[in-house]
Design a protein around this nucleic acid. Structure first.
Length: 673
RNA sequence: GCGCCCGUAGCUCAGCAGGAUAGAGCAUCGGUUUCCUAAACCGGGGGUCGCAGGUUCGAGACCUGCCGGGCGCACCA
């Protein structure tokens, strides 16, 4: 939509300025020409403040430069007028009827480009307990990010990493075995007859407590971890069972939120297929990882942590020893003294595989056939489905959605790539980091947690280990119940199934919008009442705007036999005075269309900055603009036929773009609400 | 101690790659339904953009320092 227009203006500006003032085209000032949007439509549709930047260099007033450039630009396709403002902006006015018609005719999506694949890894919940709101933020961001990349025409592979051989799964296995005295068949019975992830949630908290009571018991954990890593024993089988069943529950939870994956990557397969030992050899041979023979890490294979070069290095104070020289170099354990591998080690091997640098591949099996008909594949170390599986891995760009508390580990993974000489891939390893979700005191109390001990803290941190948190399914259930009550109130004629389906759609939008509307660097202090709100800046607000817009078209079809294509066909022959006259009404109408056209620009920005909240805010602003328009300008009841057609076209723009924006956030629009 | 993040209205947050008059939601006060769904709309009140310097034609945004808060610096992930 608007992006190509901006790019055209950008390049024509650069060209004109280059010619006019003899500035080379690759000069920084021309390489990235800023294109803004003027505050009011009467001022124009695109604004370029380039004259300000050139003023000093050319020793000319911005106003003069703007005028000269305007004269040199000539005519530009789709631009009806170019105006230099008295203060020095260069404002561009778009050909309104032309663009509105063209945008409505544009296909839904950019055709998928061939070539470079991006891998997005997200969710990655330890498969030993139910998913909670913290995981929801990860999955909501990761899933939406993948959708945005696809919208921009990128080839995307979404992976969910399953840490089935880590401490957390081991803990629950120990809990079943030691605290509950249960073997695999007994646990299987529990899994078949309970909400298993909830059961494990409680058990995990009990195990944590059980370790606290007697630290000696940590030796049991260590032994279990060993058994799991080696395999072929009852504890490993139990752990594998727990992980498999809990993962299936996570997938169900995520499916409720329209979140799906292409591939599940199991950490156990990384071990069994010797990915780790392979990567380990690489890392040892370069010296990046070495055996520590001294100090408290004696017997561990460690990696030295590169500190960021201190800025003061250029200007060392003479005669004073730097602190760095006195400090012990920091080291991170990759292989523990008991011989087991830490998570980072396995993640390094995984990262190498993602880029196709490991020289080995997984086997693949079909994990489930999902509701939408798309297969979900899984890695396996057993026999794979030869030839049937798509080509996984070998990406040119890797994005790991992991919360900011793991920045340090992600840095190490990147550092490992660089240490092996893969600097380019290290540069294309993106850590999509975001802040944690915590609980407000009132919500924590409502859940029955005593927060007295941390009354002075601004929030209560979620802890799976302590069983402290809001479970994802509980939250979705509550949202759905509330939405169902509201739907029932407003649409009593709807049957129970339809009411339920509508309520679920609304609940999902409420939740997913809530998870992306905050910028990623901000801690979300989760408050249940705030999350349950369907008014104001919320997902349902967006849906409601689209429902209204769709309704206009439903009625237009019923009353006048006119659908969107019919409206578009009429545009050519309809006088466009209402759109171009320059009065307030024309600016309101066009302003709405122009705002709706900005989706691609916003998506581009969101991807560039890894900041999805800009999409959420944009969609909300567009819905607000639509609602304002809706109240002010009637469509169905408008008597002037030409005005009715152009207004309907604007409504079509809005609902199409808002529907797409919601889709990008994983939300759909109900028929009514 | 070191590193990263945050500080804008009573509360929760936007403010894009410096640009035109600092915005939104909630809360609060007042108004709008014989009219396309009031989950909506319109209006009022509410701001030393943490503090101090600096860069710039122009700073909420960039730089430096300070203050306040959070997170990380595990043989957990």
């Amino acid at each position: 939509m608007i992006l190509p227009v901006q790019q055209l203006v950008r390049s024509r500006m650069a060209e004109a300025v280059s010619r006019l003032y003899d500035i080379p085209a690759d000069d920084p000032v021309l390489a990235s020409v800023a294109v803004d949007i003027p505050p009011r439509r009467a001022l124009g549709d695109l604004a370029v403040p380039l004259a300000f930047e050139l003023a000093r260099r050319l020793r000319k007033a911005p106003r003069v430069i703007a005028q000269e450039v305007a004269g040199a630009l000539g005519s530009i396709d789709g631009i009806s007028r170019i105006e230099a403002t008295p203060n020095g902006y260069l404002n561009f006015f778009l050909d309104r009827p032309h663009h509105l018609a063209a945008w409505l005719a544009e296909p839904d999506r950019v055709p998928p480009a061939s070539g470079d694949k991006a891998i997005v890894e997200h969710t990655a919940i330890n498969p030993n307990k139910a998913a909670h709101i913290g995981h929801l933020r990860n999955a909501a961001l990761g899933d939406a990010f993948g959708r945005l990349l696809r919208y921009l025409g990128r080839d995307v592979e979404v992976q969910n990493y399953i840490d089935d051989t880590g401490v957390q799964v081991a803990d629950v296995a120990v809990g079943f075995r030691e605290i509950e005295g249960k073997d695999l068949s007994a646990v299987r019975h529990i899994a078949d007859t309970t909400r298993f992830d909830y059961y494990c949630w409680d058990l995990y908290a009990r195990v944590t407590d059980w370790y606290e009571q007697d630290k000696e018991r940590l030796k049991i954990r260590s032994a279990a971890l060993h058994e799991i890593e080696h395999g072929g024993n009852p504890t490993a089988e139990l752990a594998a069972f727990i992980a498999d069943r809990v993962v299936r529950r996570h997938l169900e939870t995520m499916a409720r939120l329209n979140i799906r994956y292409d591939l599940l990557t199991w950490e156990g397969d990384i071990l069994r297929l010797h990915f780790w030992s392979h990567a380990f050899e690489f890392l040892k041979s370069t010296g990046a990882v070495f055996l520590q023979t001294d100090g408290k890490l004696k017997g561990c294979w460690v990696m030295r942590i590169e500190e960021d070069a201190p800025a003061a290095k250029d200007d060392p104070t003479p005669g004073e020893p730097t602190d760095a020289a006195e400090e012990e170099p920091r080291e991170k354990v990759i292989v523990r003294s008991d011989g087991t591998v830490t998570y980072v080690g396995k993640d390094m091997a995984y990262q190498l595989w993602k880029f196709g640098l490991l020289g080995r591949d997984f086997n693949y099996r079909l994990f489930t056939e999902e509701d939408d008909g798309n297969p979900l594949w899984s890695t396996t170390s057993g026999p794979g489905a030869e030839g049937d599986a798509p080509a996984f891995g070998r990406a040119s760009w890797v994005c790991n959605v992991i919360d900011t508390r793991q920045s340090y580990l992600q840095k190490l993974v990147k550092q490992a790539l660089a240490a092996l000489g893969y600097h380019e891939q290290a540069g294309r390893s993106i850590h999509y980091s975001y802040e944690m979700v915590a609980l407000s005191h009132s919500t924590a109390r409502e859940l029955g947690y005593d927060t007295g001990g941390e009354a002075d803290r601004p929030f209560v941190e979620v802890s799976g280990r302590k069983g402290l948190g809001v479970k994802a399914d509980d939250l979705i259930d509550r949202l759905t119940e509330k939405a169902a009550r509201e739907v029932g109130k407003r649409n009593p004629e709807l049957g129970p199934d339809e009411t339920r389906r509508t309520a679920e759609t609304i609940a999902i939008a409420a939740l997913r919008y809530f998870m992306v509307k905050f910028s990623r660097g901000k801690v979300i202090v989760f408050d249940i009442d705030e999350a349950l709100s369907f008014e104001g800046e919320s997902g349902p607000y967006l849906q409601y705007a689209v429902v209204r817009a769709n309704n206009i078209f439903n009625k237009l079809r019923d009353r006048a036999g006119l659908d969107e294509a019919g409206v578009v066909a009429l545009l050519q022959s309809t006088p466009s005075d209402v759109l171009v006259s320059g009065n307030e009404e024309s600016h309101d109408l066009w302003g709405l269309v122009l705002e709706a056209a900005r989706l691609d620009e916003v998506v581009d920005q969101a991807v560039r900055t890894l900041e999805l909240s800009v999409l959420a805010k944009y969609a909300f602003g567009l819905a607000q603009a639509f609602n304002g328009f809706y109240h002010r300008y009637p469509i169905l009841n408008e008597e002037r036929a030409d005005v009715r057609v152009w207004r309907a076209a604007a409504v079509a723009m809005c609902r199409n773009q808002l529907t797409r924006a919601l889709q990008l956030m994983g939300c759909t629009v109900p028929a009514r609400m």
